[in-house]
Design a binder for these strands. Structure first.
Lengths: 218, 218
DNA sequence: TAGATTGTTAATCGATTAACAATC
DNA sequence: TAGATTGTTAATCGATTAACAATC
């Protein structure tokens, strides 16, 4: 009931703020890799992102990778270490519910190589859109999901349906044993505590922007 | 060069973590308002969001609204106070660049009533899509932007073009005097320091999800 | 009234930053 | 080599949480 004891091993739980920044370093490293840059350093990364070098160094330490004094880090090695740390080395199998504009945008995004995500199927209640391929991903009628799940492993359910249907979808995927939901709707999903829900709300980001704007204006 | 002095007045700068949570309270309050709930309290809000009541209370304090002991807060008053605090009371005029799937999804979202955002125009380089209305918003060819900006006030530029074109768009809108950019691409935009850029990256949210999944798996 | 909730002041906790010896 | 960068230990800072009197 009180604080849980730290389990024996050196279980260095990565703090959330670090995870978020690691994903930002990730994108930067991908662009460095594309430019054939071999090495980088906390100083360089900090410069580009306008962070403090010490913060970058501390964050990178969490990946377990050790750098070389004077040299810094090998770009590819660091990229792999970060992917490992935030779970982007493993290919998570995903299905998507709600093939509207946003859903289509997600299906069309190159998640697989860099972000550890593979869309294996999509579902939509619109019969018109059923049984076709969108960006090479099969789109089924939502009613087919319970059949689908019998034969396919699914790690993550992505929800991009209209908000009033989000809970229904959540219930369905939870019943099917899916343990992680990436929720793009405003709906606040009620799920058992062993299911992870991550809300990908644009509006939080908008709030940061408009708040800064307001501060500046007055 | 060192620390800047706090300017005379009671300029209670809202910390970023608070801004983010306020936007979450906002969405919750909207749903309470729709359900005709009159009053709420930090206890109730905390319960729903699985936060600590004291944290909610501290956050709400930042809006300047004072609650009533025993009663709590008036839902509508609190909603307005939060909107004021995060800049969603003012209607920010926005234009969008890149009318693909994601751009269309954004144009079709009901930002105006609750999120202080109004899309007044969109721009795309695809001639086929020019001079039409999408969700009642005029879509122009991108080359028309420099004419458009002469006659219209724009607070925020939203960028949903392919990443390789994002910097070009940023340059264009910065030249036109726009002071805020909401960037949905992975591109890291270089802009003058007086321009606000907010990156609305899905991938940060994905990192949080996959990291939690990995932690659980092993 | 009694109980629940507020606002405020103080304590704790965790994250960021600083300092510095070690080193390729 | 000298200089830049690392990893580590300690100090600071800010955000979260606790405690509690005030009150509708």
């Amino acid at each position: 009931m009180g604080k849980t004891e730290v389990t024996s091993a050196a279980e260095k739980k990565t703090p959330l703020p670090v995870v978020r920044r690691l994903s930002i370093y990730h994108d930067l490293l991908v662009s460095l890799k594309e430019k054939k840059v071999k090495n980088t350093s906390s100083t360089i990364i900090a410069d580009i992102l306008e962070y403090k070098p010490i913060q970058v160094r501390k964050d990178l330490e969490m990946t377990g990778l050790v750098g070389k004094p004077k040299i810094g880090y090998d770009v590819e090695e660091l990229l792999e270490a970060i992917k490992q740390c935030i779970g982007w080395s493993y290919q998570h199998k995903a299905v998507l519910f709600g093939v509207g504009n946003l859903g289509s945008a997600l299906l069309n995004y190159p998640w697989m190589m860099e972000y550890g995500l593979v869309f294996e199927a999509a579902f939509d209640t619109s019969a018109v859109r059923s049984n076709i391929l969108i960006y090479n991903i099969p789109v089924h009628h939502t009613s087919y999901f319970n059949e689908y799940i019998k034969r396919h492993k699914v790690d993550i359910a992505v929800i991009t349906v209209p908000p009033q249907f989000a809970q229904d979808v959540a219930n369905m995927v939870v019943s099917a044993g899916i343990k992680a939901i990436w929720n793009f709707t405003v709906a606040r999903l009620k799920v058992p505590s062993n299911v992870i829900v991550e809300n990908a709300s644009f509006t939080i980001s908008l709030a940061v922007l408009t708040q800064k704007l307001s501060e500046r204006k007055f």
